[in-house]
Structures are given as C-alpha cells and as structure tokens.
C-alpha cells in the first residue's frame, strides 16, 4: 500500500500578524509551524503503515524552499519514508490549484490513500481534500476522528454537525484528518538524523503536466476586523444578574 500525506507550512497561530504592504497577504517574517491537521494526517499514515507491512508513506509540501524544512522535520523525521516538494510561490496558488497539483502527484505516485488535513489554519478554507477527491473521481471521508484500514477499504468515523458519522470507503480514497484523530508523536533524535538521508524530490509545477495552472480565487485584500472591547468586571453573581437584566436586557 502507498499513502500520500501533506506537510503544509502555516504561520504560528500565536504570532502577531501584520498585513503586507500590498495588502494581499501577511508579512512573511513570522514564526512558521507545520499545520496541526497535517501532523494528525502524518500520524495516521504512520499508524496505518505500522499495522500494514510493506506500506510506503510519502509527504508532499507545496510552497517555497522553506517548506522543505517542514517536510523533513515534520514528516520524514517522524518516520515518513520520502518527501516531495513542489515549488510554488504561494501567492500564485489557491486551494483549487493545490488540489490539481496533488492530482498530478497522484498520477505519478498512484497511492491508495491521500491523507490531508481538514483545513489549513492560515487560509481556513477546508477545501483541498474535497476538491482533490472530485478531480480524481475518488470517494472521500473528511473530518476523520477514527480511521481503520483493511482489505482495500477504510472505515472512517467523521466529526459532523449533530454527532459522529461512520462511512466505509473503497480505496483509493481521500481522507482528511480532524484534530481528535490521534496524538501526533514527536520526532526522535534518531528520526531527525535519518530524515536527512531520506529520498527527497523537488518538482516544479511544470513537471506535473497540468492542463492549466490558472487560479480561480484570488485574495485581493486583507483587513483587520474591528475588535471587541473588554467590558466591566462584576463583583458577584448578584451584580451580574442585575447587569444582565437592566443594562444588557439579556435575561
């Protein structure tokens, strides 16, 4: 079996963000981390590989040279077998093109499972996995909190509005990871050393023979939403009830 997983670089959620001069993205000089949901996808791939002898795992990152560091340290050092960096200036890509880049990689690699995160915590679009599944004509199981693979099928429990849904998908399929899927392991020192020697391919978008590379959605400007002001502190429950009643008229 072969599993493709994602390694996307995102800005640290605790970083102070500044809007870039052109107004279209954030200033680049912030701390970056591996997207949390990709960590869950990587952990899931490793667990499937551990349970199924002969499984190969491949991590894919799309972005600038810096992204390579997250593929190596975030994926290969944890135990993923190989890495692929597709070079792209992120401002020239959108979720749709990312999905088509993955489609190009799938045609080369022919994996049984593509495991992505349910969302990227910068763009927050929650689209790539679903777009990819449709481009490939594959079934999908998004927002996974449990994945069991056997006999060419995956049984996936999904976190949806109203509760938990379980689907059975026949492989090949796209699965997107939710945060409660697992506890991502840390890379060991040995893992970090090994990662340096693992196979690592660098591709250009042109290598993937995509029909076209136009984007469909463009960020034209960023703004800072108007913040909320802190209100008042009340000294006890009685004062809270009184304020909610006569000031806020909320109860």
């Amino acid at each position: 079996m072969k599993i493709l997983v994602s390694a996307k670089r995102v800005s640290d959620p605790n970083a102070k963000l500044a809007i870039a001069k052109d107004g279209k993205w954030i200033e680049g000089d912030v701390e970056y981390i591996l997207n949390h949901f990709c960590e869950n996808a990587i952990e899931c791939a490793l667990q499937i590989a551990e349970a199924n002898d002969g499984t190969e795992t491949v991590a894919v990152g799309i972005g600038d040279d810096e992204t390579a560091r997250f593929i190596r340290q975030g994926a290969l050092a944890r135990g993923i077998d190989r890495g692929i960096l597709v070079s792209a200036e992120e401002e020239t890509i959108d979720s749709d093109l990312i999905a088509r880049i993955y489609q190009g990689i799938v045609h080369r690699e022919k994996p049984d499972i593509v495991l992505l995160g349910k969302q990227a915590i910068d763009g927050d679009s929650n689209q790539v996995g679903q777009l990819l599944a449709e481009y490939l004509g594959w079934p999908q199981a998004t927002f996974a909190s449990k994945v069991e693979v056997s006999g060419g099928k995956a049984i996936v429990t999904r976190e949806v509005d109203g509760g938990l849904e379980t689907l059975e998908v026949t492989l090949p399929a796209v699965i997107t990871a939710d945060l409660r899927l697992n506890e991502p392991r840390f890379a060991s020192l040995a893992g970090i050393m090994k990662a340096k020697k693992k196979p690592f391919d660098e591709l250009e978008i042109d290598d993937l023979d995509l029909e076209d590379t136009a984007t469909k959605v463009q960020v034209v400007g960023l703004t800072t939403p108007s913040g909320r002001k802190a209100g008042v502190m009340v000294k006890d429950v009685e004062e809270l009830v009184q304020k909610l009643r006569s000031e806020a008229r909320a109860i």
């Binding site: 689209q127 449709e134 999908q140 998004t142 976190e159 949806v160 509005d161 469909k216 959605v217």
Partner: peptide, 23 residues
Amino acid sequence: ASTTGKDVLPRTAVRLSAGMASD
C-alpha cells in the same frame, strides 16, 4: 458552511469548473 456544506460544495465546484469561497 455546515459540515455538510463543507463536505459537498467543493465537489460541486470542480464539476462546474467554479472557484469556491468558503465561509
């Protein structure tokens, strides 16, 4: 942008060659 909408709409977008804006 419910879990159903998030799950379904991107697939519709591909079939319509449409760009999609989420949420």
